[in-house]
Amino acid sequence: MSQYIIRRLVQAIPLLFAISLLTFAIIEIAPGDAAQMYIDPEKGTDPAYIEQVRVSLGLDQPFYVRYISWLGKTLTGDLGYSLRTRRPVSLEVGDRLPNTLILGASALLLSFVLAIPIGVISAVKRNTAVDYGLSILALVGISIPIFWLALLLLQVFSIQLGWLPASGMRNMRQELTGFAGVIDVAHHMVLPVLVLSFAQLASWSRYQRSALIDVLGQDYIRTARSKGLAERRVLTVHALKNSLLPMITVAAISVPTIVMGAYITETIFSWPGIGRLGVTSVAGRDYPVIMAVTLLSALLIIGSNLFADISYAWADPRIRYDSR
């Protein structure tokens, strides 16, 4: 197993390389470049000035020169400077990453904790009123566009009831530290986390339901039943464990969706996360930042995938990873 893990980690190196080249090439093909960000369309700017900016940002160099120079620096741990703000990329990303991770992790946890019981109940009580009720609820969840839900919740809980903050992650009138600061952040997190987990919750409970129904139809469950095991034991020991298998995949591949797909939630709730940075940097062709965000996300997903595959082997002994 450890050999397998090492092999996978080694394989990740060319993968990261491929991703960096792919992303860099796509930015290169896209119209416009980072020098364009020095223009305020409300103001208008002298084209000669932009040419100067382009030279000062090194954008007059050909594609391969910039890629190789970027690659060389990155390999030594230097992520370079944002072309837009001229601040170190490590700072731009580092300041925001924890905010997004805390939001994403909470949403992931909440969805998982709620989706599995809902899916299990639906599967066990298949085709009953309970199943239909939960199905409809889950499906309504999937079918509501995320910004629509966010705006509605915001209207009700922030504006009408005044219970929850509408924006940001901290109170800005006062510096809060210690426990009060933690509570303050948690308070600001409630709405965005709810919104983020809602969509996952809906689809995950569907997957859990499907998975469990699949497992319940398998031979070994029949065998277990015919051995006279209690239904509850069949369910928890045999069926549930195996039905979690596809859930691990689903969850693992949802990680980047949650973390990077938080853009809309982050915008509506003015959350200082990396999703907004990603979108701004794409619009501005700020390639050092785009590359950093992309590679971070790549590391995240490679990690999640590896985790999923290892869990597979753990959960389903029939699957073996040969370390040829």
Binding site: S158, I159, G162, P165, A166, S167, G168, M172, T267, S270
Partner: peptide
């Protein structure tokens, strides 16, 4: 405090919420 809230609609919400 110059606070970053993107979009007029979101700024209106933050005003209403007292932020």
């Amino acid at each position: 405090v110059v606070r970053f809230v993107d979009g007029a609609e979101n700024q209106a919400n933050a005003l209403l919420a007292g932020e």
